[in-house]
Design a protein around this nucleic acid. Sequence first.
DNA 1: GTCTATATTCTGATAGAC
DNA 2: GTCTATCAGAATATAGAC
Lengths: 173, 173
Amino acid sequence: MPDDRSTRDRLLDAFERLLVSAGSRAATLDAVAAEAGVSKGGLLYHFPSKEALIDGMVERLREQGARDVEKMRAAPQGPVDFYLETSIDTGSDFDRALIAATRLAQEQVQAARAALSDIRDAWFAVLREHVGDEALARTIQLIGDGLYFDDTSGFRDESALQHVKDVLGRLSS
Amino acid sequence: MPDDRSTRDRLLDAFERLLVSAGSRAATLDAVAAEAGVSKGGLLYHFPSKEALIDGMVERLREQGARDVEKMRAAPQGPVDFYLETSIDTGSDFDRALIAATRLAQEQVQAARAALSDIRDAWFAVLREHVGDEALARTIQLIGDGLYFDDTSGFRDESALQHVKDVLGRLSS
DNA sequence: GTCTATATTCTGATAGAC
DNA sequence: GTCTATCAGAATATAGAC
């Protein structure tokens, strides 16, 4: 069995990059192939249809999501700070995949929506367990969603994270 | 000068509805015309290009945004509760326009992005003035963004707003 | 595994009748 | 103001050479 992981992953990377930087209308098969440095025919060998490309991306996202939840659970700074700090785009592969999936979810791609929903449920379970308070856990998740939304919509505010930590600190005192 | 406001607005409504319910890829001129109950030629009489349709939508959004900020300022429950309560999709025309513009902003439509940015700045100014604390004002805006993001991404949580009000109440006591 | 050429359908836009 | 007919180019997908 030949190892074709490399080209496959480069194609998924290119698809995600285009979704993130230019949106779903710009992420055409032509554009993805060009971004990955292969021909359209080359792309269609690995992913026989656009749906297959999407499915491949979502499958990889689920794996990355499972790893992220483990990192969150074991984070030295604790799950809450880890969650908030990684709600801003850190430039990681996982962030890119997450933002790309959000673009697809807004175009009603159900596989993307379901994967995001599952990852969010896993995050919430860790937050809920750690802070021991449902209302606070939900609020923290909402703040993370807000950070994420702003960051991925071009409304980035450098001081946002510090402000949030400040306010959350007042609750503990 | 003939009054063509009615068909014009119906076209903009249809465009927004499609953006919200199906995403930007589905909001084609064909689909918008069909949704508004006119032919493509009819649409192109009012908006000679897709860019003109977008510009028309964004212009209307700015007017709605200015009215919303006034309502927020004068709200009986205060600006904070008004802001949080209307961060969830209330089904209003303004909510629809806002969500539609977010879809366009994520496809790098700069006019949509700029209008959203301006409206957000106006909201923040009212929050900032009312709570008198920058960190708290930013955190409230982030929570609103989180509510909005969840709601428009299909991650709606019925109890989210109550949880937020609960947690914010602890800060005042 | 990757490429070029081609087929098909969709999308934005124009022209001109009514 | 609204419609139908039509066009050029883009988007997804297939076929077959290398």
